[in-house]
């Protein structure tokens, strides 16, 4: 019986069930779009397939209309068109901020590791980080804009403030969860404090830390988008916010799907890298 808790659906059932909501969603979208366009052929709220294709072409193959286009772009190759396109320029701008934020997570991991290993460092930082973690990052956005201006720094700082406390605390807890026996064992094998910290504990928690960062990717993107939507001249979220004013749903929808695809690829990349780098690691 399919509805019992001990049911084991076959391959075909599993495939059908897992794709059902996607297909239903797409079908529902085009049904609604068709009905709206019967009433108003110029409707922009739920674009048709043709409108979406036009939006996609504009986003993927044309530069930002507000920027001066290269003169010979009409005869340029598809690749050249793509790499000068609005979508690509926005992706690069957002990716740069995203990478900066990711790089700034590395010190967070080291801080969490040292807090977990060295009681003095733990006592110095733990209460402060716990307090910091409770601050809603978006609520300090005005302070960030005042303190750091509306340039790149404030946007990167927003991501850092929003995500680093979680990563620090996650790393701290993971460090603390390493069995005491392993640390004692390290000492009996001639390791000193830093040997135990880096060669035993860090190596054991690294795959879990990477998983924690993976799970926080969406939060990173959330803060990045918040920053870009409020004060930016470029970036994926800037474009979405800009197009919202013009009801440019035919470009917004491809942008949203593009962001989801990018995030999925980053997540997949990290997952594969984690598996390759730590073949011993078995996820619970």
């Amino acid at each position: 019986m399919l509805w019992r808790i001990d049911a084991s659906p076959g391959k075909a059932t599993t495939w059908t069930l897992s794709w059902f909501l996607f297909i239903a969603g797409i079908a529902g979208y085009f049904y609604a779009s068709h009905n709206r366009h019967l009433e108003n052929p110029d409707d922009k709220v739920i674009p048709t397939l043709n409108q979406l294709a036009e939006g996609l072409s504009n986003a993927f193959l044309k530069p930002d209309s507000e920027e001066a286009a290269p003169e010979d772009l009409a005869n340029a190759s598809l690749a050249t068109k793509f790499f000068t396109s609005m979508l690509w320029t926005d992706t690069l701008a957002s990716a740069k901020r995203f990478l900066w934020a990711m790089l700034l997570l590395i010190p967070a991991v080291f801080l969490g590791l040292h807090m977990g290993m060295f009681p003095v460092i733990g006592q110095l930082f733990l209460r402060f980080i716990l307090f910091f973690d409770k601050i809603v990052a978006l609520s300090v956005l005005p302070i960030l804009f005042i303190a750091f201006g509306i340039d790149e720094l404030s946007k990167v700082m927003l991501i850092v403030i929003g995500v680093t406390p979680t990563i620090i605390l996650d790393t701290f807890n993971l460090t603390k969860s390493v069995p005491r026996e392993q640390i004692v064992k390290g000492f009996t094998l001639g390791a000193h404090d830093f040997g135990v910290t880096y060669r035993i504990v860090m190596k054991q928690i690294l795959p879990r830390v990477l998983n924690s960062i993976r799970l926080n990717l969406k939060a990173v993107m959330l803060f990045l988008f918040a920053g870009e939507m409020i004060a930016s001249q470029d970036g994926l979220a800037f474009r979405i916010a800009l197009l919202r004013r013009h009801m440019g749903m035919n470009v917004i929808i491809p942008y949203v799907l593009w962001v989801a695809l990018l995030l999925f690829l980053v997540d997949l990349g990290m997952k594969v890298a984690n598996k390759r780098l730590h073949p011993w690691f078995r996820e619970a």
């Binding site: 069995p179 026996e181 004692v184 064992k185 009996t188 035993i200 190596k203 054991q204 011993w280 690691f281």
Partner: peptide
């Protein structure tokens, strides 16, 4: 030292 559990480093 040889404990009952966690006697080896799982990543090695």
């Amino acid at each position: 030292y040889v404990p009952q559990k966690y006697s080896l480093f799982p990543d090695k």
